[in-house]
Nucleic acid binder design. Structure first.
Length: 566
RNA sequence: UCCUGAGUAGCUCAAUGGCAGAGCAUCCGGCUGUUAACCGGAGGGUUGUAGGUUCGAGUCCUACCUCAGGAGCCA
């Protein structure tokens, strides 16, 4: 980046200081000289400054002629959009540009009164209003300014004469880049009205254009960026664990098989079994359900690592919290015990939420208002106790409640709903907590995120570290689950079993063939060490931050049972 | 996979077993500094699919499909 800035500076063909050179460099690749002249208003004169066609820069895409930055600096370039670089609408609205001529490209949201063109280019939740003076343009072109069309607009930024916006663009030229037939648009979610989330889901390829999904996916990006930022700043290394795996022992759920065998004529062994020796990898393989085991290997050498990749579960889960394909973040840290693991999980979650509130204020504000409007129509007991922005602030400002599974059982047995027989499922030590129990703890009792630790050994995975039996001889493992309001289990992790003999016993108890796990067990043979990690469902984090109630609305193209459209 | 509910115009929803409707959107016309613009008019339907009951079914019954909410599995 720095070197590219320097070369832009050397070219010296752009007026202005260091800042404008950097901006020119950043946007230079979007510049196009070839505006289709037949789409330009014939009544407008087109002036091309000599600087438009000169001095290629050395190498790189910047070797195209460079445009003037603004009409203010080169006032003799007055119109036509020719060779003007595009300005993102976010930039037009957030910086002081009154008096400058800008070019924006985007999609029409509304065209009110044949005069007010509301454009959005995805750079921000906000639209820019472009005022089209009909007398200056032929009717044929005006008629193509319809909802959904892609257009390029050039004009002066002026203080708005209306009251709904601070600035607007007074259009000197408008070009239709891509038409949208109103009769066809009318059949899609692009028609400017409120649609249900179910309808939007049926047109997932178009829902990016809506305000809600624009906001959701900008926030999703910010959170993904925050994940890498957090770990990078703290000396973690990102590990790309395999997507195709032969490990069948992770115990994290049903797996999607990966094969190149002909399904209509499977090769058989003499015993009549499927002959996986003929398969692509010469063994049975599947899509990964977790990168944890591989991340452990890396952590026991690189110290602290994390994965952030796709994960696949072939469970027949039909809920608002499950996907067949989702993204998971799995840090793994050598020498961390369960306490360190909890501290990491809590600090990490707080960091991500805070990052979103700082970097996505406009989008979160929109989703907040959207939620407030939607909740106004719900019955009181169905509403969230806190609106979105308060929920986020609450997580940032308050420490999570921490307690053991055994203590949680006591809390539940002491609760009103338990004593009044309101729980559907029994509360007994040794069984997994049900959704209703977790929800009570998070939403009613503690009213904040809860970290539960030390679960009964038989309910958890083989790799979790076995604790000392308690005074009643009950066995637990050093597992931790972080529960969030509305989302449920957002994170699950543990201290790993580092003792070879205990791990072997656990493999036996879970019917896991130790010989297939030789590479995993090897780490316990050569310099084994205490280590811990967790898995965070990325979409569940996005759900919490955006307030979306269905996980299928926080991933662009959801995969779920009987559903892989788009 | 289980439980509950839903499926009627492009969208959101009405319609006691008796003529299938409204608002918005679309199209045509008007108005023109609008803010989910407004005013007038028009077009738009195999009521999810397949059977059944009935003189008559959007409405009742059966099966299936899809979706939603909840449960299980989990992140």
């Amino acid at each position: 980046m720095d070197s590219r800035c320097a070369s832009a500076g050397r070219s010296g063909n752009v007026a202005g200081g260091a800042r404008s050179r950097r901006e020119s460099d950043r946007y230079g690749k979007y510049v196009s000289l070839s505006v289709p002249v037949h789409l330009v208003n014939p009544s407008m004169s087109i002036h091309v400054h000599p600087s438009m066609a000169r001095r290629p820069l050395a190498g790189t895409d910047a070797s195209r002629p460079r445009p003037a930055r603004t009409a203010t600096r080169l006032p003799h370039i007055i119109s036509g959009g020719v060779a003007m670089r595009r300005t993102r609408i976010a930039e037009v609205l957030s910086t002081e540009r009154i008096g400058q001529t800008v070019n924006v490209k985007g999609w029409v949201r509304f065209f009110r009164q044949g005069r007010f063109l509301l454009l959005n280019d995805g750079s921000t939740i906000h639209n820019v209003q472009a005022v089209v003076d009909q007398e200056h343009f032929d009717e044929a072109r005006i008629r193509k300014l319809t909802t959904g069309a892609a257009v390029s607009v050039t004009g002066e930024v002026v203080a708005s004469a209306g009251t709904g916006q601070v600035v607007e663009i007074f259009v000197s030229d408008v070009t239709i880049l891509g038409e949208a037939q109103p009769s066809e648009v009318q059949k899609t979610i692009l028609q400017p009205k409120t649609h249900t989330l179910e309808t939007l889901r049926e047109q997932a390829h178009l829902r990016f254009r809506t305000s809600t999904f624009g906001a959701v996916f900008r926030i999703r990006h910010a959170l993904a960026f925050a994940v890498h930022q957090y770990f990078n700043d703290r000396g973690y290394f990102n590990i790309h664990t395999p997507i195709v795996t032969a490990a069948d022992a992770e115990g994290a759920g049903e797996m999607f098989q990966v094969t190149t065998l002909p399904l209509d004529r499977l090769p058989r062994t003499p015993d009549g079994l499927i002959d996986y020796g003929e398969d692509f990898f010469a063994r049975k393989t599947s899509l990964t359900v977790s990168g944890q085991l591989e991340a452990e290997l890396a952590a026991l050498a690189l110290g602290q690592v994390y994965t952030f990749g796709p994960t696949f579960r072939a469970e027949n889960s039909n809920t608002s919290r499950h996907l067949a394909e989702f993204w998971m973040i799995e840090p793994e840290v050598a020498f961390n015990d369960l306490q360190d693991n909890m501290d990491l999980g809590e600090d990490f979650l707080r960091y991500c939420v805070r990052y979103a509130t700082v970097h996505c204020a406009d989008d979160l504000n929109f989703l907040h208002q959207r939620e407030v409007k939607a909740e106004a129509q719900l019955l009181k007991d169905q509403r969230n106790e806190m609106p979105l922005l308060e929920r986020l602030a609450f997580v940032i400002d308050n420490e999570f409640a921490r307690l053991t599974y055994t203590e949680a059982i006591d809390v539940l047995r002491d609760s009103r709903p338990y004593k009044k027989g309101r729980f559907t499922y029994p509360v007994e030590w040794g069984t997994d907590l049900q959704s209703e129990h977790e929800r009570y703890l998070v939403e009613k009792h503690f009213k904040k995120p809860v970290i539960l630790v030390d679960y009964p050994a038989e309910t958890k995975a083989f790799y979790m570290r076995l604790n000392q039996p308690d005074d009643q001889g009950r066995e637990t493992v050093a597992a931790m689950d972080i529960l969030f309001p509305g989302v449920g289990e957002i994170m699950g992790g543990s201290q790993r079993e580092e003792r070879l003999d205990v791990l072997r016993q656990r493999c036996d108890a879970f019917d896991i063939p130790a010989e297939e796990m030789w590479w995993y067990l090897d780490t316990r043979r050569f310099g084994t060490a205490v280590h811990s990690g967790f898995g965070l469902g990325f979409e569940r984090l996005v759900m919490f931050v955006t307030g979306m109630g269905n996980i299928r609305d926080v991933i662009p193209f959801p995969r779920a049972p009987k559903s892989a459209d788009f």
